[in-house]
């Protein structure tokens, strides 16, 4: 097996006349922490949506773990181990923090209608296991005091933490974080960044869209720069920082 966990080939998506994503060839290696950066409207979130199958590309192919997922449903891709978060946090507002996490970790069998009616001792044991795991994750993210609060009562930053925790309940192989630091206070942002770095060290492949360039440069092993849907640069943070095209895209008159 190759070292590539995710690979896209000739991926194109247009909205009307606007080219949102136009990528020839891009791949992401196992265990790498990659950041995708670019000016507003560069197609970062659309790229995320295409890979996680929330949007349909015009043409192109996507491979995850060498499997073609070009026509898969989002939930099928997720079951393969590709878990994403959203730019605008999507927590289950009227469920408690604990329920948010337990739902995420629960297996298809455990969620099933008949299993739920019968409610055997093994399913109770499974639920207990889920609860323990949820508390472990909440402790790790420092939200265990909120376990019985409704998710909608959480602050913006806490919701980001909850969404991250919910993704971790799934034991992801590839974790795609869409602006994990947006709207988070500087102190919490630092903690979150540390947390993301730790996850990467534990062997989870991470792909992250982030506007906070300082943060990106600090923890990323590789940076991919998008502008107008195209990859204009990729490489180590150092390389990208000194790339003329990148400087132009960020400071030039073309976009902002």
């Amino acid at each position: 097996m190759s070292n590539k966990l995710l690979e896209v080939k000739n991926l194109k998506k247009t909205f009307g006349g606007l080219k949102a994503v136009d990528i020839e060839n891009l791949s992401f290696n196992k265990n790498e922490l990659t950041s995708v950066i670019g000016p507003n409207g560069a197609g970062k979130t659309t790229f995320f949506d295409l890979v996680s199958r929330f949007q349909q590309q015009d043409i192109g192919e996507i491979y995850f773990k060498d499997k073609k997922i070009t026509k898969s449903q989002p939930y099928k891709v997720s079951r393969l181990g590709l878990i994403r978060t959203f730019q605008l946090t999507k927590v289950f507002d009227r469920m408690t923090v604990l329920e948010n996490l337990m739902f995420s970790g629960s297996s298809i069998k455990n969620d099933s209608f008949f299993q739920s009616i019968i409610s055997t001792s093994s399913s109770k044991k499974y639920e207990k296991g889920l609860k323990d795991k949820a508390f472990e994750i909440m402790k790790d993210l420092n939200i265990e005091k909120m376990s019985e609060s409704y998710a909608r009562e959480l602050s913006g930053g806490q919701k980001k933490l909850l969404e991250l925790g919910r993704s971790l309940m799934k034991n992801p192989e590839l974790l795609m974080l869409d602006e994990p630091l947006a709207g988070v206070n500087p102190k919490l942002a630092e903690d979150l960044l540390e947390k993301i770095k730790n996850l990467s060290d534990q062997g989870i492949t991470i792909l992250m869209v982030e506007h906070n360039i300082e943060a990106v440069m600090k923890i990323s092993e590789r940076v991919v720069v998008l502008a107008e849907g195209q990859v204009i640069a990729e490489g180590s943070p150092q390389d990208v920082r000194n790339n003329n095209k990148v400087i132009e895209a960020y400071l030039g008159t073309a976009d902002e």
């Binding site: 878990i83 289950f92 469920m95 629960s106 739920s116 409610s119």
Partner: peptide, 26 residues
């Protein structure tokens, strides 16, 4: 019994946010 069960929890999650439910493999 059902609404307190994992199945009921899953339905409530659908009520709250379908996209998030999909993103979590359901």
């Amino acid at each position: 019994r059902l609404s307190a069960s994992p199945w009921g929890r899953a339905l409530r999650a659908v009520r709250e946010d379908e996209d998030a439910v999909r993103a979590l493999g359901k």
